[in-house]
Amino acid sequence: MTFNQIMKHYNIVVTFVLMTLLINCKSAKSVMASGEASDKLSAKQVIKQHEKNDADFKTMQAKVRIDLSQGEKEQGATFNLRIEKDKVIWLSAPLGLARMMITPDKVRFYNKQDNEYFDGDYKLLSDFVGVDLDYSKVQNILLGQAIYNLKDEPHSISVNENSYALQPKDQNALLELFYLINPSHFKMDSLQLFQQLKRRILQVDYKSYQEVDQQVLPKHIRIIAVEDADEVAITMEFKSTSLNGDLRFPFKIPSGYKEIVIK
């Protein structure tokens, strides 16, 4: 599926991408990037600290302002987000006009404005970003964590503008992968994926972090997806969020809606 074919289903693609990028907590304080990257740390030491700082919570609830631009198109809104870690990600548009629920097995979505729904797997989102995604990878992006297990293969390390730059020693010729790790809290500063043959780029930049209940979580995120001359950019600002409350995840596709079929 080409980038332009995917963008024909603009609303659902936008919602899928938003789901990969939402996280925040209430009573938060900004995390200052006061650390300095040292060339004395090995890749194994940085990876160990990165995995140690993975956020630990049961549930999360948030409101998030999301702005998207694609060519001359621009739109923005505030969404309600609920997460039960490792189980479900739920997103609702204002007035319930659209709703999405992601689980380890399925991606489901309905849109009351167009009387349409989608009930399928991760193929659409994977085609859009150029990476085979699953629930674990989506959640890791949410939390500022590496999308692959960094212990699965050896990585090289260098210091790049006060970030630890990690990359697999044996880069895939079809997909080049780079992580920039913050020296203060060892979360990601940036995730960068390059597919030279398909002329595709995916870059997720974590502009700032915050500390909540001794957890370091993303606060402002920007994602850019490019194929050839086509570019989509999304920015997020996270507010009014709480952790570990009792949450419900209501989701029922209304009867009579037309199914969105992705070929």
Score class of each variant (00 low, 15 high):
Leu125Phe: 09
Ile89Asp: 01
Lys26Trp: 00
Val13Leu: 10
Gly71Trp: 00
Thr241Ala: 08
Ile260Glu: 03
Ile221Ala: 04
Leu193Ala: 07
Lys198Glu: 07
Ile223Asp: 04
Pro104Tyr: 02
Leu191Gln: 12
Val261Tyr: 10
Ser136Asn: 04
Lys106Asp: 02
Lys73Ala: 10
Leu142Arg: 02
Leu193Asp: 06
Asp170Ile: 09
Pro218Thr: 10
Ile147Asp: 03
Lys169Trp: 01
Phe3Lys: 14
His220Cys: 06
Gln171Phe: 12
Asn24Ile: 05
Leu41Val: 03
Ser255Ala: 15
Asp56Ala: 15
Leu191Thr: 05
Val216Ser: 13
Lys169Cys: 11
Val46Asn: 11
Leu174Ile: 02
Ser30Ile: 03
Phe57Cys: 15
Lys137Asp: 00
Asn80Gly: 15
Gln61Tyr: 02
Gly76Ala: 15
Glu231Val: 12
Met236Phe: 13
Ser34Phe: 00
Leu125Ser: 14
Tyr209Asp: 13
Ser190Leu: 06
Gln5Trp: 09
Gln70Asn: 14
Ser126Met: 12
Leu143Lys: 06
Leu22Gln: 01
Gln196Lys: 13
Gln167Asn: 08
Asp86Pro: 04
Pro218Ser: 14
Ala55Met: 04
Ile181Ala: 09
Gln61Asn: 13
Lys26Cys: 08
Val216Tyr: 07
Ile47Gly: 14
Ala33Phe: 08
Lys63Gly: 03
Ile181Arg: 01
Asn80Lys: 14
Ala225Gln: 09
Lys187Leu: 11
Pro183Asp: 01
Ser184Tyr: 04
Tyr148Met: 05
Gly35Lys: 11
Ile141Arg: 05
Gln61Ser: 13
Asp105His: 15
Ile102Pro: 06
Ala55Ile: 05
Lys187Asp: 07
Glu74Lys: 15
Ala55Leu: 07
Val216Ile: 11
Ser69Val: 09
Leu133Trp: 06
Gly35Phe: 08
Gly245Asn: 13
Glu84Asp: 12
Glu72Lys: 12
Lys8Thr: 09
Lys187Thr: 06
Gln61Leu: 04
Gly144Cys: 01
Ile66Arg: 05
Lys112Met: 04
Tyr122Ile: 02
Ala28Ile: 01
Pro250Met: 12
